[in-house]
Design a binder for these strands. Structure first.
Lengths: 214, 214
DNA sequence: CAGTTTTTGGCACTCACTGCCATAGTGGCG
DNA sequence: CGCCACTATGGCAGTGAGTGCCAAAAACTG
């Protein structure tokens, strides 16, 4: 099923695309993602408890010792797939002109038609969360880490101090709404279809931004 | 410093107050709380990493094997101290007449004057969270578990289905605000005084309930 | 007080993770 | 091309968290 000795990164896209100077950086990022994908696959197949760190390492074509250098725990292996969404969202919000409502930045960039390729693994992972407390902890932690980022963005738009109570509260509440929105997306994508999932996300975001005046 | 063989429960309040029928239940609950207090004390003294499960067990006067029967991990030992606040809050909200605004139930029961005895350990624990990822995970998990409870309460007041998006969103956002409120309480209690802490909590709750129309 | 159930403890085991050191790639430079 | 510095990887051994299993003790029942 898996070629034990084969580097996952190499399987992923054949000959490396001649990276510029930070070649070594690229390699590490790729390995990180490879581990993440393999971990999600194994967790989905047999569950987290039945998957050992050694299993993940073998699937990714690295030694266990190296796996623990990339991630501090087996659950954390999935973090890249859980955090990219929030990171790109934060980037879009930062680039949004201060006179545009925040929800425009949140709705932009949603998959419009049928292209759901890249997000498939993410959605599958989010659907795993209810039954896997260890993964849920990572999910909550990722969102918690995003709180101060959103607080900074919201504060910057209003000229407030990011340490003030109001921007922090708005950030936490928006962040929670984004979490529910993503969970709703994943749920509806499985029960109905992609379009229904995206619509669920949009509705949740709309409700939240309206209530918070964003 | 600690009498190793002495049951922590017995130290806590001398001769047991002649419990009625469910004596065994009472005992277990007491032991649970004892473990929690000892764990917080040790975590605060030396940090989580430098505290072993055996240390906690010894401090609580039980064997390690028994400790793992009460809690699934050493970090989880502090859970009782993190969850009681949310539980009493939920109880008060449930008992609140449906025609009263929710914030009345949230402000009721706050320590009015100087009696901060029982909450001291909780506040100390919350102040530990920023530097202890493992404990922060428990904190987030406790709040996550409270989400569906709040969703039920909010849904019941409006006659909506607890599974609907709107009550769920309001619950998550309120819940996040309560978390920030508690953190603010703990922070200000240390930097200023009790009154300032409680005031921080009240302000955060007010902001949130106003934005959410609760 | 005897019998039954529940709770606790001891023991051995697995596995997540870490520090230490050797080895193999990788990039820079004459 | 060949040498050198650096970094990434792997192996090995160790710690400690957490679990299953069984025996001892304590609590509840009649």
């Amino acid at each position: 099923m898996q070629q034990p000795g084969t580097r996952a990164a190499e399987r992923a896209e054949g000959p490396r695309p001649s990276g510029r100077p930070p070649l070594t950086e690229r390699r590490k990022a790729e390995t990180r993602l490879d581990i993440a994908y393999e971990a999600v696959r194994l967790f989905a197949e047999r569950g987290v408890a039945a998957t050992s760190g050694e299993d993940i390492a073998r699937a990714a074509g690295i030694s266990p010792r190296t796996l623990w250098r990339y991630f501090p725990s087996k659950e954390e292996c999935v973090r890249p797939l859980l955090s990219t969404g929030l990171e790109t969202t934060a980037r879009r919000l930062r680039e949004l002109p201060a006179d545009r409502p925040l929800r425009e930045g949140l709705e932009a960039g949603l998959p419009q038609a049928g292209e759901a390729d890249t997000t498939t693994a993410q959605l599958q992972l989010i659907r795993l969360l209810p039954g896997e407390p260890g993964l849920r902890a990572v999910w909550l932690r990722v969102h918690h880490d995003a709180e101060h980022v959103f607080a900074g963005i919201i504060a910057a738009r209003t000229g407030a101090d990011p340490a003030d109570l109001v921007p922090r509260l708005k950030a936490v509440m928006l962040n929670g709404a984004l979490r529910v929105a993503a969970e709703e997306w994943a749920r509806r994508s499985a029960e109905a279809d992609q379009a229904a999932g995206v619509e669920g996300f949009r509705q949740a975001v709309l409700q939240a931004t309206e209530a918070l005046g964003l």
